[in-house]
Amino acid sequence: MTVPAAPGPAPAAAPGPVLACRQWADRRADVDPLTGTVTSDPRSAAASPADDAALECALRMATAWGTHVVAVTVGPPGSEAVLREALAAGAERAVRVDAPEPGDAASVAAAIAGVAGMVGARAVLCGDMGWGRGSGAVPALVAAVLDARQALGLVDLATDPEQPGVVTGWRRLDGGRRQHLRAAAPFVASVEGGVALLRRAPLAGVLGAGQATIEVVAPAGTCPVPSWTPSSTGPGRPRTHVVDGPDPDDPVRRRVELLTGLTAERPARRVVRAEPVDAAHQLIAALADWGEWS
């Protein structure tokens, strides 16, 4: 199945720098099971394998297209470690959006989109998953803010030097199917960790990255799509149903019918066509009718 991200790829256009997004998070954060308090140690913080794969893809892409990579992170000063890694590996410029506390997906996306605008990047690469076990919504939200095409969750990504600004890739679908994607800049692509192994930074890069300047900017811009916030962060508790047993005085046949629901009337099957938001409301209403939603 090949689905060109509509409209078809634009002819070769200067794609601008490639923006590589990197999240700095503790790989081994402790979560107190009783209070939910997260204790993290900056020493075990690092970029995720997916972010590293995205950086490697960005570097190869920039080489193929004759442009350069800008690395970006949203976080406190400590998060500059992941930017220095990117500089050592070959990124030309690094920007940190100052955010002392971890923000929600929408604010992070707005910040990254702001940097994309600032540096003129029309190709944005992210890892599809961070250590932080977040919602994974940032790449899609960045695309929403930038009004860019999405190629998310790629398991393979390729660029062609003849077609700067165009990316092709494969993504996984349910049921063993796959989808081939092709997107022209502006696009946001996210990749799985196995897509590429980040190159070992050369010594000269490491020596230079130690003292390189990292631009620090304040968060700017907003995200038009509200980020999803969980209503509860407690443990999942499957609900129990209290089912009264049948009247022991009923005849056996009746009791079997009641216990198995064999002859009970079922809710009518309905096929509904609706806009997504309306569809969601209808689903919730149906679930409530059936007693599965309160």
């Binding site: 490697e56 190869r60 892409m61 193929a64 190159r199 050369p202 010594l203 000269a204 020596l207 230079g208």
Partner: peptide
Amino acid sequence: MSAPGSLTASDNAASSDAAR
């Protein structure tokens, strides 16, 4: 796509002043 980790001539010349 370029081969990963391929070295350019400038990479190998790490005995530049920066690495002294």
